[in-house]
Amino acid sequence: MLRAATIVALALVPAAARPASPMTYMVSSGPAANPTTALGWGLLGLSVFVAAFIACAVLIGIWWKRGDGAYDGNGWPVVSRGRNGLPWLLIGVPVSVVLLLASAIWTFHVLDAIAAPPKKAPITLLVTAHQWWWEVRYQRTDDPKSGFETANEIHVPVGVPVRLRLSSADVIHSFWVPQLAGKTDAIPGQVNLAWLEADRPGMYRGQCTEFCGMQHAHMALYVIAQSASAFRAWWQYQTRDAAMPTAQAAASGSAVFGSRCAICHTVRGRPGSQGGLGPDLTHLMSRRTIAAGTLPNTIGNLAGWVSDAPSLKPGVAMPRENLDGPQLQALLAYLQTLK
């Protein structure tokens, strides 16, 4: 067993020396997650200690040389009543109870701390999960009519709590941005409340964590925390409609969009584009990724995606479009105007 432990330890050293994953929750960046992170390290430490203690107790118990006792004809120790083993239970069980009680109290304390934001959240996000992307509607909490819609990328101001109202358009999903908050399921027929707050600027990755069908693996999102002024500018920009394209190529691309894309996708300001099945594309080019975090939002990826989405993300609702070269070029020119 010692041998096994050594091998495992050696194997894990290179793994542990890597930089942390963007998804690790052993570090966190906001009051909805920080108390949990501390609790996590605490309980992890206690768990490692308990497991190591019992493992050592077992190893010592096996190899500890006992005084000579009688052996039977087969060379096996003769059965006897043995010494009294009860002290193990009489000490071990009460100590376990005390440790459990302490863990429970800490747990309830943290549960209370993360149940609701410490101050009123001025912004509410209506997050609706779809197979396999995130629809996000922004509102000022005091004005439900305000706001705009975007997808798969959430911007938040640093130091300000944001309220989430989570629901689903189809099956159960789970909203998780590990460094900002624990998971909350998005369940059809009900609205679950959650909140998050980033205490420093940065880009935080999230991912769906309830199995939701074929492309569960490709349902990521990003939360981008920025300064209050930068956030305000972003909000202003996002509320704007898309401008009608002026250049020749983009204008003919707009026509392609109208015939191929508009039935499912909305572009605010473009007449006839109010489709609700896919993400709102009004400011598509302001997003860092496409297809729910599957691909970086580059012109090449965009070209691949609009011409044959199912080969990149099998099962996706977006069909394969048989666009000829000029059509594809025009459509890409149009999409690039959606800044």
Partner: peptide
């Protein structure tokens, strides 16, 4: 015995609601 204790303490960690919201799934 050893594996049970390792599986037991990791189960104990998931009993802690806030921590489980991170650990689960």
């Amino acid at each position: 015995i050893v594996l049970f204790v390792i599986g037991g303490v990791s189960g104990f960690m998931t009993a802690s609601v806030p921590l489980d919201l991170q650990l689960t799934d």
